[in-house]
């Protein structure tokens, strides 16, 4: 089976700033793949290389086996992109914008009209079909971005921060829709800094920091790399940390807080039974036990702030850098507010 994405040593340099420092990744067909990273990590630059909006300074990127520059037409035809910024044609009502987008991908006019209708109904804004993009509400705009990505019937759906700034209900609606698409076989590449989103949706995530891949793993594997907290409540407070607990190499740290003993360890679920037995042997009566699992967010913060890979031997060079995103991306407008000529006066 061809991989949806094969990226080898991808680099992008903007003057002195290295936005991508040799990114290598493989995303299998049908995967739900997350790309996590703080602002300026290079996520949008990475996506823009795939769709042809940024030219790589080095390395190779293949979309379903098609090189993004040498076979750009084949590569782009497989991708549907919902970018973070609202870059929508403001001259036409939204159903026409979708028909045009489908047409650019070679979809005949009558089929394009059907696809536009289906996409707008799917995201729930069919009744707004004759409205221009600028007149949609914020949530509808976000829905429309997804509809535009879907209208070309892509094999690889790229969602760049799709739920940025949307309310909880819309976020859940979008999650549901994207999950359905993935279940139907569409490969999904999701960039987000909502860790919960990645945790819920992704089979595998790559953490990108300062233009480098820190690690690639499933959310569960990543959480296993973080430190869980085992909180044991004792009948009577201990005077000192019990010897058996202090001697356990798997426990990184132990704290006593009144009648509570808190042990910090990786894979707390495996350590806790031994800890309970050891305390019992030493005569402590346990009245409560709680294992607080590390969150993906804590692992993410650990990896991107401390500049250390956890467990896989890879390393990053530093704490998050200043923005490595292209300047041009910041110049985009959101809703046309900065456009001195939104109506096309020429």
């Amino acid at each position: 089976m061809t991989n949806a994405l094969e990226i080898d040593g991808l680099r992008k340099q903007y003057g002195d700033v290295e936005a991508l420092k040799g990114v290598s990744l493989t995303v299998p067909e049908g995967a739900f793949f997350g790309l996590l990273g703080p602002n300026g990590a290079g996520k949008t630059t990475f996506i823009n290389v795939l769709v042809g909006l940024v030219r790589a300074s080095g390395g190779d990127a293949y979309v379903f086996g098609n090189h993004v520059e040498d076979d750009y037409r084949e590569a782009r035809d497989r991708i549907g992109l919902a970018p973070q910024e609202f870059n929508v044609d403001r001259f036409f009502p939204i159903h026409e914008v979708l028909e045009h987008k489908a047409g650019y991908h070679g979809v005949p006019e009558d089929v394009a009209a059907e696809r536009a209708e289906r996409a707008l109904k799917r995201v729930g804004i069919w009744d707004k079909r004759d409205t221009r993009f600028d007149w949609l509400s914020g949530g509808m705009k976000r829905r429309f971005m997804l509809a535009r990505a879907l209208v070309t019937d892509p094999d690889l759906l790229i969602l760049d921060e799709p739920t940025a700034g949307v309310d909880v209900q819309l976020r859940r609606d979008l999650w549901e829709l994207v999950t359905e698409l993935n279940d139907d076989g569409t490969t999904v590449l999701l960039t987000t800094h909502y860790i919960e989103e990645a945790e819920r949706l992704c089979d595998e995530v790559a953490i990108l920091d300062s233009g480098e891949v820190v690690t690639v793993a499933s959310p569960e594997e990543l959480m296993d790399r973080g430190n869980d907290r085992i909180v044991v409540t004792l009948r009577e407070a201990a005077d000192a940390v019990p010897e058996a607990v202090a001697d356990d190499d798997r426990i990184e740290r132990v704290e006593l807080d009144g009648d509570r003993l808190v042990a910090v360890a990786r894979q707390g679920g495996l350590v806790a039974p031994d800890l309970v037995r050891a305390l019992d042997r030493e005569g402590f009566e346990i009245v409560d036990l709680e294992i607080r699992r590390t969150s993906l967010e804590e692992v993410f913060v650990d990896m991107t702030r401390q500049g250390e890979a956890v467990g896989d031997g890879e390393s990053t060079d530093s704490a998050p850098s200043a923005s490595a995103e292209p300047v041009a991306a910041d110049a985009s407008t959101d809703g046309g507010a900065d456009d001195p000529n939104p109506e096309g006066e020429r």
Binding site: P83, Y104, D339
Partner: peptide, 17 residues
């Protein structure tokens, strides 16, 4: 205008030559 508002990306990200 397409560059300014970035909607020319709709064309640029398509398979059109």
């Amino acid at each position: 205008h397409g560059r300014w508002n970035e909607y020319i990306h709709e064309v640029l990200t398509s398979p059109l030559s």
